[in-house]
Design a protein around this nucleic acid. Sequence first.
DNA 1: CTGTTAGCGCTTTCAG
DNA 2: CTGAAAGCGCTAACAG
Lengths: 343, 343
Amino acid sequence: MGFKKRRVKLEDIARKLNISIATVSRALDENPRVKQSTREKVFHMAKLMGYMPNQIAKSLSSGKTNIIGVLIPRYDEPFFIEVCRGIDQYARKHNYKILISSSRNSYEFEKENLISFEKGLVDGIILSPTHETENVAHLNNLVNKGIPMVLFDNIREEVSGADHVMIDDEKASFSAVEFLIKKGKKKIAFIGGIKQKKVFQDRYKGFISALTKYKIPVYDELVLHCNSLDREFEDKEILDFFKHLSITPDAVFACTDNYGLLAMKTLLKTGKKIPEEVAVIGFGDLGLGEVFVPTLTCISQPSFEMGQKAAELLINQLNESDEVDHQKRIIHLKTKLTEREST
Amino acid sequence: MGFKKRRVKLEDIARKLNISIATVSRALDENPRVKQSTREKVFHMAKLMGYMPNQIAKSLSSGKTNIIGVLIPRYDEPFFIEVCRGIDQYARKHNYKILISSSRNSYEFEKENLISFEKGLVDGIILSPTHETENVAHLNNLVNKGIPMVLFDNIREEVSGADHVMIDDEKASFSAVEFLIKKGKKKIAFIGGIKQKKVFQDRYKGFISALTKYKIPVYDELVLHCNSLDREFEDKEILDFFKHLSITPDAVFACTDNYGLLAMKTLLKTGKKIPEEVAVIGFGDLGLGEVFVPTLTCISQPSFEMGQKAAELLINQLNESDEVDHQKRIIHLKTKLTEREST
DNA sequence: CTGTTAGCGCTTTCAG
DNA sequence: CTGAAAGCGCTAACAG
């Protein structure tokens, strides 16, 4: 807005046509209560004058913006972008736009962003809390104010009143590790992410329970929890990890595709044959794994679908009557194992 | 908005304190014209009552939303995401938020998205037109309405009044190809993108002029202009390309990192040694090239910086006086060649 | 079918 | 320093 040239508004059309603003508004709204001929006149004049409705005025008046706020921890993670695509696709169909913000992995920024959402720009919020987010009071707070919310990825179950979209991380990683075990692997390394994230905790649990079930020893040395929040450092962390191993793993279960690729890269550099000597399996399936040589076997996570589902849940909440209290919903999406060349 | 519970507004604070709405508004605005003690009372009460300003009302009243609309052709292209990060970073510092939309490579969607921007949601627009966009009337149209605009990537110089942020694609690709030539390569393949995009046209020109300058033959067979708009098909297109060659190239200049990686992948599969038998160079430098084995040499494009610069130009326009006509600015950013293992 | 009127919540003259 | 009042552009009773 604030466009330099003056914009034509309803009033201008009304005056030109010698009718009331209300009628113009209704006509443009395709309200059946206005005469066909009037409507046509209005449409014609609106077009002629280059009328463009003012969304802000509409929102103030109607009490809704038709914008969904999306808050993700970072942009440079294909998973989040894919989820956003899913949200966008569903939202668009239902006449909503999305406003994406990044909390840049910071609890403070998360709060800050939510505040700007709370200022009335968005009708509801979809978010993945950062790993730093221990206290979820700010989230419950928003929910209590009646702002519809859906969580995904780093779910915090304590947030009552917000819907959740998730996968069964533990089960998925269990099946990945089981797959390796059934291939005869016995020295399986684990590369996880930030320990504070529920998804990584769960993937670790799955890893452990698979090994336990099949009575395969857990070598502490073969377990790495990456702490990096940056591509650059992840790289280094994984390189170092492999450099200092005294046991040579015959398989690697990586909690993200990126970790899987970095692991393969490091292994290849040290002359290992994949998958003959070391099998590698990743998690995510966001396209990168298919480009690498060898291509990466991985747990396929329905990222796009997660987004769609999150949007669906949110929009359902938005359409719920304001009277009844929202009944929390938790959606579990299925994962599958996609076998490629690295195993 | 439309939050179920009623929100506290200026009026509520005013009444509680027995002062006028105007004073509350001014106090909260840190307007020096209000007495220190009053201001403190207001702040205290606002906090107590959990006041949260209504951005929509503010926007309607002030005529600006402090939102920048960003329109990119697709989300699943790291380059665009990186540009968005740059925009976001600069915008944030200057108290702007960004609203990202994707035109999904469609001229129709581009127009549609711009219309929703034009409805007053955004103060200005940063965009990369789609390859389908031949007619730029819709863009000039917006500019003429006084909406500040900055173009990047697939620049259309015809859009007068909009600022441009670009790199010298021709020069950059010239230098890449020259680099290959100086390494003694003589049968250089070219993998470009959609021909309708200016960036790809320019990169092709650079390729040709380097070969010409050094009197290296251009083999038509070694030139591929990818038409795919989808990862999946790009893959296939490049595979096919190499499969049907009768000449074996000793180098490949790829117009994106992704093409470069796919080329390497295909070459490796057919047993070629990189860089000994075939050197490969990409364009972009968005992180993927560093993970691959071998790592990809490429032209580094300052994507993040492009975003920052675009935001800077736009925000400058927003701050310009409404009286004077905007003086078009074109910014050229520098590229450099980053040598890695693939050459 | 159409017009009148009262908001939506905030900013901003203009008076005082 | 503070208040009253107009207005941003549109929607939605309510009345006719």
